[in-house]
Structure formats: structure tokens, C-alpha cells
Design a protein around this nucleic acid. Sequence first.
DNA 1: CCTATAATGCTCTGTTGGAGTATAAGACAA
DNA 2: TTGTCTTATACTCCAACAGAGCATTATAGG
Lengths: 334, 334
Amino acid sequence: MGTFREIGIAAEASKLAAPVPARDAIAADLIAVLVAVTSGDPRVLTIQDQSALPSGPFELAHRSLQAGLRAWVERQTRLPLGYVEQLYTFADRDRGSAGQHVISISYLGLTREQLASGEHEASWRSWYSYFPWEDHRAGTPPMIEAALLPRLEAWANAPQNPGLRQDRGQRVAITFGGGGRAWDEELVLQRYELLYEAGLIPEAARASPPGTLRPGVAATPLPGAGQPMILDHRRILATGIARLRAKIKYRPVVFELMPETFTLLQLQRCVEALAGRLVHKQNFRRLIEQQDLVEETGETTPDTGGRPAKLFRFRREVLTQRAIAGTKLPVSRA
Amino acid sequence: MGTFREIGIAAEASKLAAPVPARDAIAADLIAVLVAVTSGDPRVLTIQDQSALPSGPFELAHRSLQAGLRAWVERQTRLPLGYVEQLYTFADRDRGSAGQHVISISYLGLTREQLASGEHEASWRSWYSYFPWEDHRAGTPPMIEAALLPRLEAWANAPQNPGLRQDRGQRVAITFGGGGRAWDEELVLQRYELLYEAGLIPEAARASPPGTLRPGVAATPLPGAGQPMILDHRRILATGIARLRAKIKYRPVVFELMPETFTLLQLQRCVEALAGRLVHKQNFRRLIEQQDLVEETGETTPDTGGRPAKLFRFRREVLTQRAIAGTKLPVSRA
DNA sequence: CCTATAATGCTCTGTTGGAGTATAAGACAA
DNA sequence: TTGTCTTATACTCCAACAGAGCATTATAGG
């Protein structure tokens, strides 16, 4: 079992036996959540008939994890990877075959959608097809009230233990905004995990060995619970979305998803697509401008229907000039 | 080289040849940044004469990474690990021997200091002995002006390229708060990296193969640049400190470092120790109380010198009741 | 010319966070 | 006993900011 290295009381057997992999051999995978926003839709790059995130082995040739991911994504998709950030690392015995440990290191990357040659089965897909309850731009999606909440409340009220009942009820209220609470768009992962625990996510059934199935789990793979993915890819995607929704509020990363020049409304729509909720237009503009995040190009667009809008360009200088910067997107409460 | 799995154009040789480790074998390490606050000092658990963070191999027996870390730390130190959070995962070819990749997964853990049997060489040490420039509780440490800034400015002004010069100058100003800028206590990692690049950190010399040494690097391992650690452990520690300093502002994690009952001043001192700067007492209390993070025990302390203080207890309920909670510690600017 | 759609400018207001003042309650020394 | 030191605790002030709404301007299309 584990010992502090250097304090190690006894060298493990494997240390002495195996030749080069001095310790338990482990495989490492890189998994990418690649995001682009196209025509008001936040999309992720998927493979395998849209049921998986792109992933690949981490190899000796790679200098570092991030370099490995970058090289690999850019070769495969010809996408300019603007921003890359590590998400999370996990290891489950379930994942590898034959009890071998596979460590998965997931990354979030921002680009602009672009279909390149070489992407055989890869395709972009709206992330809301995996998490339909996350899109509140047109108000709370009716499926929450109609489909999710009844099931969640049934799950919350199921246990004998009143403490557990209260706990579950609270979690439902917090994550899905029941009882007058405001919707918090950042709780993407918590919501997914709640639905998972409540058995409304088909993936939950696959994970439990047959027979161990908790009552209620995946008896009915709830219509409207979103498209499933292989393994825990949907959880990884949820992690990525949550991270991105949090990040756009204090770091100017949205611009990695925008074309060279854009109007303020386009920028706003992009933020709204990510956040899954509308923002107050005037306040949004005030915030962007007072932070000097953009500069006018001098041109205007022929436009879409109204008064022509000025075109802007991201001031890349702010990335070096400021420590915190931040597009604190003013999300409306209405 | 890497391919998207499932899109893979050709199976790699290793896939066909090797038996169980289907791909390039890799070793994984867990590295722990264990923090406690004792008598106003934020301390980390170290080994090897205080030159290394405790670490150990991740093994097949472990169910998951976090479980592995928890089990392992608790067995070794008998510490109740209140809070554990993954920090970062990295892999450098330099790290392993013989070109083997070692993946290191670092964790941050909060406890209370406690020397248990079995900790042969382990000891707690103030994190400010590794980062003396980070403690601003008694005002800006004089060594910044006296030792660091001159060297940093020399480094910033060294290049021919005026753009690069300006860039470096800006980074110095942002991270070390020159030119009227406020000190941002969260930029721990950026500061360390800057010092590293500028060659003021002994570790930088070790990393470069002999001959590749950039001019100025570690020619003199600057007195006052803090105690070095092995490999990149000091960078990991910097990551942990930065994360913790950010976290205490929006999650009630400080309480994991406190005894069962405490006075508000004790709590404040703990936050100040972590943040490395003083907070406004009255505002701090207002914030803590208005958030219902604590409840009175009814008792008071015999005290340290002044009017007796009420004792408080953390209301653990808030952890389940709230999504965001947050101890937004009001840091004074003075 | 009228209407629809955006862009853009400006105001109002409630909340919050930083900072300061004032008072209370003990310990301790002269 | 009294004054002083130290800390706890209660309140007040003010500026900055964020949410929300109103008003005006500029186009396209009938």
C-alpha cells in the first residue's frame, strides 16, 4: 500500500521485479472538451456518432501534457487552439480493461468551429443536447417542471430517514432552483450528479454491476434527460461547462470563441449561449467598455435588421497588462 | 503520435505488442500539499529535511485518486483530512528516470497540525520560509525592495527587444505591485514563475542541463529567495497556496483548519495567516456573522489580555444548505 | 411616412464593501 | 480604587457597483 516516498518502510515488490516501468504500470489518456460557439449554439466536438469526447493516449513522445494535447488536437482538426486549460484528472478501476488503471486527464479548449479534413467521424454538437435542462435563455425549460422535478422529488422523498430526505430535498432546491431560489447556471456538475444519483441518467445503470442496481435507477431512462455518452464523458463535459461558465465571469476568455471582429451584440449572444441565460444588454456593454476589453475597428456592419452596429476587436494587450481583468457578465435575474 | 481514439488511423505498435499495459507504460505519483495553521503560521507538511512534499505512488489497490490520497495520508500521519481538493496534474520527461514518463497528481489537503507516530522525517514548516516575499501581514517585507526588485528590474531591462522589455516590466509591476498597484495576494504562482524565469530561484539552475544555462540564471542563488525544494515541489506548493488563498474567499474552507470552538479573532488570524495580509476586524466579523457561518457556544474564553471573547462553532449545516456560501474575507488595502 | 429592430446614451436605486468612530468588558499595575 | 491597556462588539458613513429601466438614434422595408 501507499507509503510516503523517501520514508517508505519497505520497497514494494514491483519496484524490484519490473524492468522499466518501475512501479505499477498505468496508462494515461487525454480527453478534450473542445468548445466553439456557432450561430448562438455552444458546441462541443464529439466522435463516435456524437456519443464520445475525443480522446487519445498520452505518449512518451509528448513533452508535457498540455503540449501533448495541443499537438494532437491541432494535427487532427487543424483548429487553432486558442485557450487550453486542464480540467480534472481521475482514475477508476472500472475504466480500464482487466483491472488496469487508466488515468484520464481532461482538458477544456476553446476554438472556432471549423470542419477540417481528417475529421472522419468528428462532429460538432450543441452541448444542450446532452444537458437540455441547462438552457434558460428562453426561460426555464418546461421539461424541468414537467419531467425532472417530479422524478427528483420522488427520489428525495423516498428514504425512511428524515434527515436524508431533508438533505436530498435541499439539494434539489439548490441545484434546480426550487422554492423561490434563483437559478445558478454554474451548478452544471452538481445537477448532473444529482440526476445521476436519482437514477435519471442512463449512464448510471451501466456503471452499476447487474444486481447491484439501486431501486429506481434507470428503470426508465427518462425521456428528456439528454443524450447519453460513453463511460463518464458526460460528466467530463459537465465539468467543462461548469468551469467555462464560471471562468467567463472573471477572465476574458470569451474572445477566444469570437471571430477577429464582432459587434457587441454578437459578443453578448456568445456569452448568453455559454451561460445559458440572458444578460442585460446595456449593462453588458457598460461592463465591456469600461474595462477596455475591446476597441472599435472604425467599421460598421450592414447588419441584421436594425441600426448598423460598430465592429470591435479584442484588445489582446489586456491579457498581459492585467492580472485579473474579467468579463463579469451581468446576468439578469428576471 | 497521438490520434483520436476511435478515429485512430493506425493502431500503434505498442498496442499490438505489449501484453497488459496496452500502451506506453507510465507511472503515477500522488503529491500532497498538507496545510495546517498553528500559532498564526500557515504550515505545510514536509519530508526529507524540509526539502520535499510528501508523495507516494498511485497503486492498483486504490479505488480512485482521491481515495488513494486520503487512505495514504491518514495511515501515515493519523491526521483527520478535513478537506481534500485536486490541484494539478503534470508530466515532465525530466522527472522520471531513463526517459520514463511520470505523471504527478497533486492535491491540497487541510488539517490541524499534529505530530503522530510513524512520521519519521516528516515535519511542519511555515510556508513563508519557502516564499518569504508572500507574508505582508507586517507590511511589505523589506526584502522585496531590497533584494528582489533590483534583480527583477535588471532582468526586465536586459533584453534588446523593447517589446519584451516592456512585457517583463509589466509582469514585474503586476505581480509585485510596483508603480502604485495594489498587492494581489493570489498571484503566488505567477510571482514564483517570474522569479524562476529571472533566475533568482535555485531550482531553475538544476532544471536546465549544464551549458544551456541562460545568462544570469542562478549565478547567485539570491539570499532571501526562500528555501528551495526538490524537483518542482516548490512550484506545487505555490499552486496550493494560490488555490487556497483564492478559495477562502468564496468557500468556507477555513474552518477545516480551526479547532472545534474558536473566537472570531482566532478565525481572523487564521485567515490572515493564509492570505498573508491583514483584514479589517469589524468588517470581517460582519461578514462572518451575516452569513450565518458560525453559532455561539455560549461560553467565553478566559482570554488573552482584553475583554473576554465569545466562543463560536462552525455551523456545518451550511455546507449542505448552500451552494456558494463563501467567506469573502474583506482584505484591507492599507 | 410609418414601423420594426437594433444600437446607444443616460438615470435611478438598492446593495455591498472598505473604513472609521464609539462603547463595553475584562486584566493588571500603580 | 483608579487609571490604563487590550480586546470585543455595536454602529455609522460613504463611494463604487450592479441591476433595471427609459429615452433617443439609426437603419431597412413596406
